[in-house]
Every structure is written in C-alpha cells, then in structure tokens.
Design a protein around this nucleic acid. Structure first.
Lengths: 188, 188
DNA sequence: GATTTAAGGTCAGTCATGTTGACTTATTAT
DNA sequence: ATAATAAGTCAACATGACTGACCTTAAATC
C-alpha cells in the first residue's frame, strides 16, 4: 500500500479510504468488546461495569467526578454501576483526607482480579495485532487514532490522571455547566 | 516515539503500550460517534439507525440477513430500527426478482441525504486525522486495526458486500444456528 | 459566621437498543 | 409433498443511557 497513489498523491483522502477507516473502527470496536462482554455476563455485569473497573484500576484514587469526565455519562448512570461494584466488593470508596467531600475510588483485590481477567483478553488481542503489524505500523496507528480523539482529551489517552489532573482542574473551572451536565443520549 | 525503545526493542509490547491502545480505541470510538448522535437525536433516531443507514447505503440491495450479519444483532432488534426507517421513507424494500423471499434494501433519496449528513462528520474527522498523520501512518493504522478485527470479518472491512457475498454464503451454510442466532448481550 | 459552591448521592420516570422465545407467512429447494 | 430459508411479528425483559428534582456534607468565599 506504499504505492504511488498513497505516497505521492494526497488523493489518498478519497472517500473510499475514509469510509474504510469508519468501518475499521466499527468492526474493531465491535470485536474488541465481544470477549469481555461474555465474561461480564457471568457476573451479571455489562460493559458499563467494565469501563468503570478499567478506569478505576488504571487511576487508583480517582474521584467520582473525574471518572464521570472520562466516561462522559451522568452521575445517575454511573451510580447504578458503581453502586453494584461497591456493594459486591469490587471497588472501595474512601474519603479523601485533604478534601473530605471526595470519595477516592480504588479496586479491591477482587476488583483487580476481575479487571485483569477482562483486560487480559483485550491485551492479548492488541499484542497480537501490534506484533503482526510491526512497530512502525503501531506508531501510525497511534498517530491516526489520536487524531480521531477530540483534542481536549488527547492528553489523557494512555496516561493515568495523575499527570493530567491539573489540566482537568483547569477545564473544570473554565466552565462546568451546573449540576446536570448536558449529555447527549446514547445507548451504545 | 521512534526512539530506541520502540525501534530496537520488541519490548514495545509492554503492558503500558497495549493499554494505551485499549484507551485509544475507547476514546476514539466515543468521540467518533458523538457528532452523528447529536444529529440523529433531531430525527428521533439513535446510533442503531445510523448503522442501518450506513450499511444499507454502503451496500445497496443488501438483504436483511446480510445486514444482520454485519451488525451482529437479532432480527427482532433490527426490525424496530428498520421498520422506523422504512415507515419514514429513508429505506426502501423491494423483493428480489431472482428469489422473491428476499427483500433488497436501498436508501431512498431522503435516506441518502441523511446518510450523507451523518457520514460527513465522520469523514471530516478521518480526513483531518489522516492528513495530519500522513500516508505512512494511515497504512499503519489500517494494519493494526485490521488485526484487531476478527479474522472472519476482515474481508468485508471497507468492501461492499458484492465482493464478499460468496464468502458470506459459504460461512452461512457452514453452520447457521437455526432461527435465533446465539447473540451475546450488549447495550453498547 | 453566614452564605455559596462543590462533591457526591438519591428517587422517579423515560427512552433506545439489545436480548429470548414462540410463532406465522411466503417462497424456494429437496 | 415436505423441508428449509428469508422475513416478519408479538410479548416480555435487561441494560444503560437520559432528564429533573432534591438532599447532605464539606469546603470556599464574602
């Protein structure tokens, strides 16, 4: 594919190629979530639980507000999911010593075990894909997909929030639409 | 990022890098679907409608069974969505002359207009990302993401079904679990 | 110190989109 | 003639989004 067309001709921006990108993202996401979904079913959990577990595991001590910022859902939506995970002992909440309004979220041993179980399947899938494609392709993959992510969120991709916490705080103070953030409807 | 680590050391398969991939896919998919979702809301439609419109537009004359194979949902799920789209004149159904059991699906002029409207936002996002990343990166993006897709479905990524129809037929006859395909639970 | 703001939680109701299961109707294939 | 296929339908249910209205506690500001 490093042929004339894509090398010397910026016409690689043909609609066909762009649609291929759209479809790649659709199929990849569909298959990427398939295996974890099956595991979650055995626990009576869904993909929403997976996301919560994943990002709490990735950001130990994350606050509820920060988690909402990553997931882009309402706190009412998160509360059901988080409530179930706390109740069943996968996630622990502890008041922040500095600001006792905040509840710091961490995975329990049980939560870590489930997180590892779920993430293992996705890690494997990526490991195979990275290995088969090679280091250079992986770098291209990163560059393109990072370009798909909204600029504001690029900093936190792949980075635990510790590094981006200051930036988040800035954004939040810049404007935060009251209590009920305006969220778009979803379903998938 | 073309540093020593990722160039001469296959250790680029570190868990950190793999998790970055996972997160990239999560954030990219989340942002990639955001704009269309907002447009769809004004029609009272959701992401499921978008997917149906997209793939019918991409595969004019596709049958219901073929569409189900792409979307990986049950026909009962599709029927609601498809029913609404047909009823409101976005999609037309016509009996196949050769096999009159089949209903060939095509977009109406109205459907094409909506499809274009929805896809435009995603095309733009990809065009920018491709342009900024460069042709080589795009090739890497393709290779990696194709590796994430289940092998069985790689052939149809980016290809209208015309080309892959024979293969689909083979797979279907190989085994097709009765009427109610075994589908995993979802939500997202 | 009183008031406002922020972080978190909760109750109630709705919607979109997935799922099973059980049938029906045409049409084609055996 | 019978069986299989393509499509559709009715019913019930689960999940995970959403809005709106409120409450509590703790911190920040006036």
């Amino acid at each position: 594919m490093t042929d004339l067309k894509s090398t010397i001709n910026p016409l690689f921006l043909r609609e066909e190629d762009l649609r291929q990108g759209i479809e790649l993202l659709f199929y990849a996401y569909r298959d990427f979530t398939g295996e974890p979904d099956r595991i979650l079913q055995t626990y009576g959990f869904g993909r929403a639980h997976h996301r919560a577990i994943y990002f709490v595991g990735r950001n130990p001590g994350i606050t509820v507000t920060e988690l909402l910022g990553i997931l882009r859902i309402t706190k009412q939506s998160l509360s059901r999911v988080l409530g179930a995970l706390v109740e069943q002992g996968f996630i622990a909440q502890d008041a922040d010593a500095g600001d006792r309004r905040r509840r710091l979220l961490t995975l329990t041993a049980r939560g870590e075990a489930l997180e590892a179980d779920l993430t293992r399947t996705q890690i494997k899938r990526f490991a195979r894909a990275y290995r088969e494609a090679g280091a250079e392709a992986v770098e291209g993959f990163r560059r393109v997909l990072m370009g798909i992510v909204n600029p504001d969120d690029r900093a936190r991709v792949g980075n635990p929030i510790a590094q981006s916490r200051k930036r988040d705080a800035d954004q939040q103070s810049r404007k935060r639409d009251a209590d009920q953030q305006s969220r778009k409807r979803d379903g998938n």
